[in-house]
Design a protein around this nucleic acid. Structure first.
Length: 259
DNA sequence: ATGTCCTGGATACCAGGA
């Protein structure tokens, strides 16, 4: 079972390349972030034609997450992260797919920091920690996947002394929130599979970052206990980032064994 | 401070977010 995550940065503007990528890589499940479109303008028909059912939590212009499933419809279990009824941003979608509970995550960017946007990021990650603890306790196979907007350690960026050092993605409080998740027992799948090599999932459009390989690792797969032993392989599809008109993220994928 | 690219609103650029 192949599961991918892709911050697409505008699904309608990149629909043709998304469809080509789906055909080429044929993942069983795809978690998408930054759709930047409302539900009514989500390209459901084109994806269905490509063989994918979809659950969508859209929003006009900003945010937006979706879960695609090949030859099936996701069974939605949640459309929002619990803990703040006032938070209307579309950043969380949870669905049961082929025996796994999949949480598609688009955490807040949090810049500039300090400030209210950073406070919101930390509060959101705290709510994620609380909900993740409940999911962990359920003993169900769960995958927390998506754009966490956190660079977990200095090994997850081309240079921690770069212009990114004051960015919200690298701050100790952001990292502490991510580490609290890991502390619950969740497995950082990509880092586990590739313990020492650089892994990047995002290259800024600015400063010629792709050409310089000035990347950051901010898209993550976190596996609940029963999924640890099913982890077979995983990596970043860097070729997709090299294409003309690409998102600033590359897709990340995992291969899980059958139970 | 800058770099670039997305979306959407009232235009043939700008605001806001990343």
């Amino acid at each position: 079972m192949k599961i991918a995550s892709y911050n697409i940065n505008g699904i309608n503007g990149r629909l043709a390349s998304l469809l080509a990528w789906l055909e080429e890589t044929a993942p069983d499940v795809v978690c998408l972030q930054e759709l930047k479109t409302e539900d009514a303008k989500f390209p459901r028909a084109a994806l269905r034609k490509a063989g994918y059912g979809a659950a969508v939590c859209g929003q006009r212009a900003y945010n937006g997450v979706a879960i695609l499933t090949k030859g099936a419809e996701p069974i939605v279990t949640r459309r929002a992260l619990p803990g703040d009824a006032q938070d209307k941003a579309s950043r969380y979608l949870e669905a049961a797919v082929k025996g796994i509970l999949i949480a598609c995550i688009y955490a807040p960017n949090g810049n500039p920091q300090p400030g209210p946007r950073f406070d919101y990021k930390l509060a959101w990650l705290e709510r994620l920690n609380a909900h993740a603890a409940a999911l962990w306790a359920s003993d169900v196979p769960v995958l927390l996947v998506g754009d966490f907007n956190v660079v977990p350690t200095d090994s997850d960026i081309y240079s921690a002394k770069s212009s990114w050092k004051d960015d919200a993605l690298l701050q100790p409080a952001s990292r502490a929130a991510f580490q609290r998740l890991i502390g619950q027992g969740w497995l950082d799948a990509l880092r586990t599979l590739h313990p020492t090599e650089p892994i990047y999932t995002f290259w800024d459009y600015k400063r010629d970052a792709w050409r310089r390989n000035a990347g950051l690792r901010i898209d993550h797969f976190l596996l609940s206990r029963v999924l640890h032993e099913r982890l077979v392989d995983g990596n970043v599809d860097v070729a997709a980032r090299a294409l003309e008109g690409s998102s600033d993220h590359a897709p990340v994928w995992l291969q899980l064994d059958e139970p």
